[in-house]
Design a binder for these strands. Structure first.
Lengths: 340, 340
DNA sequence: CTGAAAGCGCTAACAC
DNA sequence: GTGTTAGCGCTTTCAG
C-alpha cells in the first residue's frame, strides 16, 4: 500500500530551521519577493534543495485566498464531440500553456441538465478562473458567472448582446472568404456553399465569409444549402445543389467532414473533382488529408487558440487589462481538390 | 472587473450558525458521518441550501491531509490522438464518474521529454491518486510511481513484467475472436487480418484473438499484414493481401479506420463488399458507421471503461481491496459489410 | 530587510 | 450525538 506522502514532505518550517531564518523569509523567497538579501535567498534555496521541499498547495491557497486552479469547463454536448480533433488540440494548447505557469487545470464536464452544480463549484471559491470551451454551440450559458469570476470562452458567443464576455475565436469569416477567393481566382464561377447550422457562430460566420467573397466578385450568391457539419447531411445537401444547378463548378463546405460528404455525392453523380467541380472545406483536419482527392481547406490554429485562451485568462486573473476579443488567424491550405 | 468570489462565499461557520448547531456537526453532515440525528442533518442541509454553501477545498485538504484531487495523466503522444473518439469517451466516463464523488480531476499532459516534472508533481502530495490513459502505447512509464501513489492505467501494460500495476482494459482478444468467429459462421473460409503495430497491446491482442478463431476452425492463419491503425497503411496492407491471395473472402482489420482503408483497396481492385469479400473492423467508432457499406465491428464500452478506471482508483484510495486487472466486455455489432 | 503573530476554513480527537 | 479545542502549512500584516 502506498504510504502517505504528506507525512514525509518537508515543511516550510523545516526549511526555515535549516536555513537559519524565519518562516516569513522562506515564504518570501519561495514567492520571489524582491525584498530579501541575496545571502538569505541563497541559504533558503540551498535548504530547499537539500530537503526537496515542495510547497503545500492547500496551505498556500488557504492562506493566500487564491487557489491557483483554473477550471476547464466542457459542456457535455461538446464532450460528445470531444472527438473533434479541433477541440482536442484546443485542450492540449490550454494544458501546455498552463503547465508553464503554476496554475493547475481542473476538468469539468458540465451536464446540460445540471449546470448549476458547476456554477456553484466555480463560484464556491474553488478556482481562480475558468475556461469554457463551447466552440460549436456558442453557448455562453456560463456568461453571467463572468461577473464574479474571470472567464474566457473559446468561440464567440451566440448572442451578440453578451458582449461583455472575454473570448478567443478563429477568424471564421476571414478564412471562409479567403478560401472562396481562392476558388474564384482559380477560375470558378458557379460557386455553391454547404453551411453548418445557422444557429452556431461558426455556421453563420463561415457563410458570411463565403457571401462576402462571391458578392465581391459579382458572382451569384444563391447556391446555399444548409447541413449540420456531418458527412451524411452534407452528402444530401450536395445532391440538392446538383439538382438545383447542374452547372455548379465549385463548392465550399463549412467543414472538412462536410466537404468529404460533398465528394461522395459528386462521385455518385459522376462529377470529377477537381476537373468538373472544385471542392474546398474548412478546419484542416483529418478528413481533409485523407479524402481523395485531398482537400483544399482553411486550417485553424487550434493549439494556439487554446494557449491564447489560457494566456488571456492568466492576464485577467492577474488583474491586468486584456482585450475582450482575440481573433486567431487562419491559413489557406491548397490541395488537389481545387485544381492541379 | 470580477470581484473576489472568496469574500462572498459562505463558510461552514455561517452554516452552523444558521442551522443552530456547531461547526463539527456541519462538518459531519457534509462528510456523511452516520452519527448525526436526522433532525440535525435536515437543519444543516436546509442551511446549506439557503446559503449555497460549498466547502472550501483548500481548508478541507489542509485539515484532512487529503487533496481530494486525482490526476488524469495523458501522455502527449496520446494527446495527439486525443481526437481518438475512444479516448474522448474514456475521459468523459472518468469525468462523469468523478463528478458524483467529491474528487476533482486534474488534467496533466505529460510531455515525453520531461515526464519527471509530472512525476514530481504527482509525488509532491498534490493529488491522492492518478489515472493514466496510455491506451494505445501501453506505455507504463509511470508504473513505478504506483508504489507511492494509487495509480490506475487504461489499457494493459506493454511489458508483462509490470504485473503489479492496476489497470482496466477492453477485452481485445475476446472481441477479435468473436468478430472473426462471425466471419467464419457466415461461411467465409479464406480470412485475412490487418493488424495494428505489434508493439502495442491492442495490436497484439487483437491479432491473437483472430488467430485463436481461425485456428479453432482449422482455417489457414497465414494471411497477416501489419499496419499502424491508420487508413493509409491499411489500404496498402489490403493490397498486399490481395496480391498474396486473390481468393481471400474476408478480412478482419484491427480498427475501423483500417477497415475503411481495406474498403478503399477492395474497391480499387473491383471487389464487392460483402459479396466478394466480407470486411470487419474493431472499435465501433465513427468510421464503422459512415463507411459504405457500414462496418461490422466490435464496439468498445469506452465510457464504461473510463468510469471503471475511476471507480477502481477511488476504491484504491479508500484503501479497499481491488482486483489489479479489470476486463471490460465488448459487443459484436453486425452491419452490411459482412453480409446482407 | 526580517521576525512575530494571527489567522485562512476545515477536520479530528476528545470530552461531554 | 454534539460541542470544544487544537491545529493542518502557509501568507500576511505589523513591528522592529
Amino acid at each position: 500500500m502506498p504510504r502517505d506522502p504528506a507525512s514525509t514532505a518537508p515543511t516550510l518550517e523545516e526549511v526555515a530551521a535549516l536555513a537559519g531564518v524565519s518562516r516569513s523569509t522562506v515564504s518570501r523567497v519561495v514567492n520571489r519577493s524582491p525584498h530579501v538579501t541575496d545571502e538569505a535567498v541563497l541559504a533558503v534555496e540551498e535548504a530547499i534543495g537539500r530537503l526537496g521541499y515542495v510547497p503545500n498547495r492547500a496551505a498556500r491557497s488557504l492562506a493566500s485566498r487564491k487557489t491557483h486552479v483554473v477550471a476547464l469547463v466542457v459542456p457535455e454536448s461538446t464532450a460528445k464531440v470531444f472527438a473533434d480533433p479541433f477541440f482536442a488540440s484546443v485542450v492540449q494548447g490550454i494544458a501546455l500553456y498552463l503547465a508553464d505557469t503554476d496554475y493547475t487545470l481542473n476538468l469539468l464536464i458540465a451536464s446540460e441538465t445540471d449546470s448549476n452544480k458547476i456554477k456553484r463549484y466555480l463560484l464556491g471559491g474553488n478556482v481562480d478562473g475558468a475556461l469554457v470551451v463551447s466552440h460549436h454551440s456558442g453557448d455562453h450559458s456560463f456568461a453571467n458567472i463572468g461577473q464574479s469570476l474571470p472567464v474566457v470562452f473559446g468561440g464567440r458567443p451566440l448572442l451578440e448582446d453578451i458582449v461583455d464576455s472575454y473570448y478567443v475565436d478563429v477568424d471564421n469569416a476571414g478564412g471562409a472568404r479567403a478560401v472562396t477567393q481562392h476558388l474564384i481566382e482559380s477560375g470558378r464561377r458557379r460557386i455553391a456553399t454547404i453551411t453548418g447550422p445557422l444557429d452556431m457562430p461558426p455556421g453563420v460566420d463561415r457563410l458570411s465569409g463565403w457571401l462576402s467573397a462571391v458578392r465581391g466578385a459579382d458572382l451569384p450568391d444563391d447556391l446555399i444549402e444548409q447541413a449540420d457539419f456531418t458527412l451524411a447531411e452534407a452528402t444530401a445537401a450536395m445532391r440538392r445543389i446538383l439538382d438545383r444547378d447542374p452547372d455548379v463548378d465549385a463548392v465550399f463546405a463549412a467543414s472538412d467532414q462536410m466537404a468529404a460528404g460533398a465528394l461522395t455525392a459528386l462521385r455518385e453523380r459522376g462529377r470529377r473533382v477537381p476537373e468538373d467541380v472544385a471542392v474546398a472545406g474548412f478546419d484542416g483536419d483529418y478528413f481533409s488529408e485523407t479524402s481523395s482527392p485531398p482537400l483544399t481547406t482553411i486550417s485553424q490554429p487550434a493549439t494556439e487558440l487554446g494557449a491564447k485562451m489560457a494566456e488571456v485568462l492568466v492576464e485577467l486573473m492577474a488583474g491586468r487589462e486584456v482585450r475582450r476579443v482575440t481573433m486567431m488567424p487562419t491559413e489557406l491550405v491548397v490541395r488537389a481538390s481545387t485544381g492541379s
